[in-house]
Computed example of a mutant assay.
Amino acid sequence: MRDREKVRETLQACLKNGNFMVGFLILLSVLLVALFSEQIAPYGYTEQLVGGKFSPPSAEFWFGTDELGRDVFSRVVAGTRITLWVAFIGATLELVLGVTVGLICGYFGKWIDRVFSFLTDLTWCIPGTILALAVVTLLGKGLTNSVIAISLVSWASYARPVRAKTMSLKNMAFVETGTAFGESSFSLMFRYILPNVVPSLIVMVSMSLPATILSTTTLSFLGLGSQAPSPDWGLALSKGIDYIGTAPWLSVFPGIALVYTVLGFNLLGEGLRDILDPHMKSQ
């Protein structure tokens, strides 16, 4: 009964939170576009000469066409899948690395904490974009390598809070009870401590996803991420810069799609922070 009441209260809080609802609706629309992109897009994103080259936005081509006569609207729609894939894979890799390191540091302490904390601080102090560029240079160009690079430089943002939370929880009565019953360190970390960190993790993930998307877009913009003919929005922005004076729609519409998606994640993250983490309420 208490769990049901808690769930009901959380749902009510979500419905009453303006940031959460607006962000949720924005991301729901992005998700629906990604799921039904093949039905929504009138042309394939690699299909050339569907119209004249550099045709401006019109009733037939809503977002115009590019230098190869491809429909920009179809390419922007196809790009939503790439953006959501980047967000999901990036968040998963960052969570696995950050949470694991944070739990180990906070639970064991001593020299293990000092070693991993040093690595965390080292990763944290180096500018993320520069470090990501170095990693991509080693791994090679490509969207997958870009996501891996961003994850390898962003996990520290999860490790620090998880470490602090673990240190405050490991001496709690329920953890000591598990120790008395002979539970292993692995079990204590992942069965006893981790569930109590999950609400904070949800907030952290929702707040860090926009940065992951923008960082990956930056690498694509610099030519190190997605490669042609991918409909990636960062790559579209990079290619559109060459024609910004004569065909601005090549950059404007992918840019609007990127801003729209990032805004949705930001609003959702702020709403979740207010709902799940009362100590960090927006002012």
Rank of each mutant, 00 (worst) to 15 (best):
M1D: 11
R2G: 12
K6T: 11
Q12C: 00
G18Q: 12
F20I: 05
F20V: 05
G23W: 14
L28I: 02
L32A: 15
V33P: 06
F36A: 15
I40L: 13
Y43Q: 08
G44N: 13
Q48R: 15
P56G: 01
P56V: 00
S58K: 08
F63H: 05
G64K: 06
L68W: 05
L68C: 07
G69Y: 09
G69F: 10
V72N: 09
F73R: 02
F73M: 15
R75D: 05
R75W: 07
A78F: 14
T80D: 08
W85C: 05
V86P: 08
G90W: 04
A91D: 01
E94N: 03
V96N: 00
L103H: 01
K110P: 00
V115I: 15
V115S: 10
L119A: 05
T123V: 13
W124G: 00
W124L: 13
W124Y: 15
C125M: 14
P127I: 03
G128I: 06
G128Y: 02
L131N: 03
A132M: 11
L133Y: 02
V135D: 03
V136F: 09
G140H: 07
L143M: 13
N145M: 07
S146W: 10
S146E: 04
V147I: 15
I148T: 03
S154R: 07
A156W: 15
A156E: 11
S157W: 08
Y158T: 01
R160T: 06
S168F: 01
L169E: 06
N171G: 15
N171Q: 14
E176V: 10
G178T: 07
T179L: 14
S184Y: 01
F186H: 06
L188C: 02
M189E: 03
M189H: 03
L194P: 05
N196M: 07
N196A: 08
V203Y: 10
S206T: 10
A211P: 00
S215N: 11
T216W: 01
F221S: 05
L224E: 09
Q227M: 06
S230Q: 06
P231H: 07
P231Q: 03
D232I: 00
W233S: 14
G234H: 15
L237A: 06
G240D: 10
D242G: 12
I244R: 14
G245F: 15
G245L: 14
T246D: 04
A247K: 12
W249D: 02
L250W: 06
S251E: 03
V252W: 08
F253Q: 06
V259R: 05
V259K: 06
V259F: 15
Y260Q: 01
V262P: 00
G269W: 01
D274Q: 12
L276F: 14
P278W: 01
H279T: 11
Q283I: 10
